[in-house]
């Protein structure tokens, strides 16, 4: 049996999102508004929630599927299920806040940046993650971080959201007691 420990409950997660929304607004004060682009699957949900928490200037919402840009096709025996990439605003010269649930090796973000570049040349891309668990394999850092955790290689961070999961919160899975 894998050990599982809850780190944030539903209310704490909600509070964290509130905090992140406030930080977005703060950043925007000096830099101007962002369009929010979530990375499938949970990044898309987080982007939607953050958008609803934000006030002020009109921001657009986009979703990005990074599977066609992954660097590990050869390892999987069947290809991953593709989800919709939907960005209804011109990427060209826009300011984009890329949103994902957990930042780990940085490879997903690398793929997401490549996918984004194929859609156009944004003026600036910032990165927001709910949890930064460390363990980077590429030189990528987030600009806005909800929660920083030091997690060993044998452990996993799971963000669960009620839109697609049965429960809501952040869990630490596996590892030693």
């Amino acid at each position: 049996m894998k050990k599982s420990r809850q780190i944030l409950n539903e209310q704490e997660l909600q509070a964290l999102l509130q905090k992140l929304a406030a930080e977005i607004s703060e950043t925007e004060k000096t830099q101007g508004p962002f369009h929010l682009v979530g990375i499938h699957r949970r990044g898309v949900i987080l982007a939607k929630r953050l958008l609803s928490l934000l006030e002020g200037p009109k921001r657009k919402l986009g979703s990005l599927d990074i599977n066609l840009y992954r660097d590990d096709f050869a390892q999987s025996s069947t290809m991953p299920v593709l989800r919709e990439t939907k960005i209804d605003f011109p990427v060209e010269k826009s300011r984009i806040l890329l949103i994902d649930d957990v930042l780990f090796t940085g490879r997903t973000i690398r793929s997401a940046l490549n996918a984004m570049m194929d859609l156009g040349r944004p003026q600036k891309v910032d990165l927001l993650v709910l949890v930064d668990r460390g363990g980077r394999e590429l030189p990528i850092q987030a600009d806005l971080v909800g929660l920083k955790l030091e997690v060993s290689d044998t452990e996993n961070v799971a963000v669960r959201l009620k839109e697609i999961d049965k429960e809501e919160g952040v869990w630490l899975l596996g590892g030693n007691t």
């Binding site: 840009y69 593709l82 194929d118 156009g120």
Partner: peptide, 23 residues
């Protein structure tokens, strides 16, 4: 068909190419 829908989006892009089958 569902997978095809994802690829239809690519046909509308300025850069109609993805690296999925590189190599």
């Amino acid at each position: 068909f569902e997978t095809t829908d994802r690829f239809r989006e690519i046909a509308g892009r300025p850069i109609k190419k993805v690296p999925a089958l590189r190599g």
